[in-house]
């Protein structure tokens, strides 16, 4: 796809974009869906029209879907299992006297 005029995997649709919306200041942008648009400007405008009709957002990101690099579900064990055994990273791991305060 690198030298393609299209993204989203086919020639007949406008390219696919992923839409991320910040609901309120102070929050992360969050993935809320996708849409088709001919270019990024159009994607941004249509994201506004499609995904913020009920006042759901104060900021929008769009990104061409084929620009997202994603981890492979097949690598799930390799990538994420090792973190499971590191219980000492969590506060509940530590055994403290019941009456200790401010900790």
């Amino acid at each position: 796809m690198s030298d393609s005029d299209r993204s989203g995997g086919n020639e007949r649709d406008w390219p696919l974009f992923e839409v991320f919306i910040r609901a309120r200041t102070g929050l992360h942008h969050r993935h809320c869906g996708s849409l088709h648009a001919a270019d990024p400007e159009m994607a941004l405008a249509r994201a506004r029209d499609v995904y913020t009709r009920r006042g759901e957002g104060t900021s929008i990101w769009v990104v061409a879907s084929d620009r997202i690099f994603a981890s492979d579900p097949a690598d799930k064990d390799m990538l994420f299992e090792p973190a499971m055994s590191k219980v000492y990273r969590h506060p509940s791991f530590y055994d403290l006297p019941d009456d200790v305060e401010n900790m």
Binding site: G8, G9, N10, R12, D13, L16, G33, S34, L35, H36, V50
Partner: peptide, 16 residues
């Protein structure tokens, strides 16, 4: 639109 997008994640295009 939301539903077409959900189906597209299964490897079919909206055009199709």
């Amino acid at each position: 639109l939301y539903l077409y997008a959900a189906a597209e994640t299964l490897g079919i295009s909206r055009a199709e």
